[in-house]
Amino acid sequence: MSAVPVTLRRTVELEIDGEAVRAREGETILGACRRSGLDIPTLCFGETLTPVNACRVCMVEVEGSRVLVPSCARKVEDGMKVKTASERVRHARKMVLEFLGSSVDLSTTPRADEWMAEYDARPERYGPPAPPAAEGERDRAQAGHHHAGDGQTAATVAQPVKVDNELYVRDYAKCILCYKCVEGCGTDWQNTFAIAVAGRGFETRIATEYAVPLPGSACVYCGNCIAVCPTGALMFKSEHDRRAEGTWDESQQTQTDTICPYCGVGCNLTLHVQDNTIVKVTSPLDHDVTSGNLCVKGRFGFQHVQSRAPKGV
């Protein structure tokens, strides 16, 4: 009557790399694989986000399927036979990693180097990188028109860093177009839609309307885009600056969960502290108040406990 509704889930049985695996109905292949201890690389997957399966690095082979399938999006089915390390799978991952490695700066993408080695990806075989685009050049690209070079250099997304406010840095030379920031800013969570995917083809980019600077856009600086960025293309300016000056040291950081000091919603904060200074604030993905999201106050409004000099007297 007035009880909490209960959802019943069936169990399905499938085969992964020859092993029988039980999974919950509705679970993804990726979920079943990870519970079985298999390490499948992912980039565009976010546990709190709708799968867009755009990066294609998590592809697996499913018997009966003409092409490979994205494990992050495909739901398990009874009797499914999945291969996660076949030659086709390994080749597809290798190519995805090479394509990304040869066109995007992956220097701040966790595990990128490890995966490159594991899949024998050699991005350098596409030639030296083409010169970076001028500021705003990629933002103005017209769909359906491109300038092909002579093929001697590999086209990249290299371009100047966008620094147009005090809180965020957008380094789209590191953007792999995983769509996660757009989803976090959009329908999945924040619903502000300050950024969207614009353009087409290799000139596709994440942009505000007409590439207006963030302060002129709808952005409300919740930082939820940065929280989900898998490559460091989006970064808090504080982290960006510390990295630039060489004082960012994750090995020296502690993480403590607490509650935001502002309104009464009770958002969980994870305070990243280095040298008794809060250097970054995130929120746990698995806590159902925030699901990893915060507002501008929770994300950035911590400076008042760090101004150690007496105030106002």
Partner: peptide
């Protein structure tokens, strides 16, 4: 981006 009398929220820079 602000809060009450700004004692806490005044501490950070908000665009």
């Amino acid at each position: 981006d602000s809060y009450n009398t700004g004692v806490q929220s005044g501490g950070y820079t908000s665009p």
